[in-house]
Design a protein around this nucleic acid. Structure first.
Lengths: 143, 143
DNA sequence: GTCATAATCTTGAATGAGTCAAGAAAACGG
DNA sequence: CCGTTTTCTTGACTCATTCAAGATTATGAC
């Protein structure tokens, strides 16, 4: 498991200042994959009760820009963040309860990166969201 | 090009009541692929100046549920709609200007539909967004 | 260690896409 | 043409996110 000094190192190597809020946000995102902003704020405040929501928003933006966290936002849901970056994995989202799980990509390291017709765009990333029902929602038990 | 009676027929076969706002919304989405809600409202009002924004929101929801239009919402952007449905095509989004283009799927009719590990989810759709730069943004001309 | 400077955080207000609710109007089956 | 049910209008409201100004803090140089 990642420690505080790991997070500090990550910040430094991204040329970012090491501040308590940032370390806490990085830790919260790492500990709660796919959490929305409110959840992250709550998690951060468990360690630093006084951080403002704004500091968390700022940190998330900065960390996202630096590539230390990734922002995802499936149709109609709030912004969510995850610390697993750089491995081009994808997500499975439950249509019913909104649960999100990771899905490794079927085809190598940077897959699907080729659209059949790229319309002249220079593509650098393919983001895939699988929609379906999670195990809990797909076996309806009327209780 | 699709006509008003085409739209009426589509509504009827989806078991939806045929109302002027709905026909106009369907037409606007068909005429402005990937438009956001404001654009659609504006387009609708060119034909029916008095429609409320609420009627447009309602229509879009209803049409989306009926599968006559599709809602897409790339990271951080507003909700956008398109009338091209049922052919499992994907989208290319420009990181710089936000332009969206269609991209046909490389691998058959319902491609990518298999994650390497589906985590127990029953997947019914794979949504792919290619991120990159559009032709205009990738050839920077400093004028 | 101390200082200066620039980045970051706090506080509190504002923005704006989208939703809610109640009554008026329109669509459809008979 | 009528009654019922759905849909539309109007207008207020929510709430995630952003903006702004001043107070704090991190960092590199001395």
């Amino acid at each position: 498991m990642a420690t505080t000094s790991d997070f500090e190192r990550m910040l430094r190597s991204a040329a970012l200042r090491v501040t308590r809020p940032r370390v806490a946000v990085l830790g919260a995102v790492d500990a709660h994959p796919h959490a929305d902003t409110d959840t992250i704020i709550a998690a951060v405040r468990r360690h630093l009760p006084k951080v403002s929501h704004q500091a968390v928003y700022d940190s998330l933006h900065t960390l996202t820009e630096a590539g230390l966290v990734r922002r995802i936002q499936p149709n109609g849901s709030l912004a969510r963040y995850e610390a697993r970056v750089g491995d081009n994995h994808h997500h499975v989202v439950c249509r019913s309860c909104g649960a999100i799980a990771d899905a490794d990509c079927a085809v190598g390291a940077a897959p699907c990166l080729t659209a059949s017709d790229d319309r002249g765009y220079s593509i650098d990333e393919a983001e895939v969201i699988y929609w379906g029902l999670c195990p809990d929602c797909s076996t309806p038990r009327d209780s």
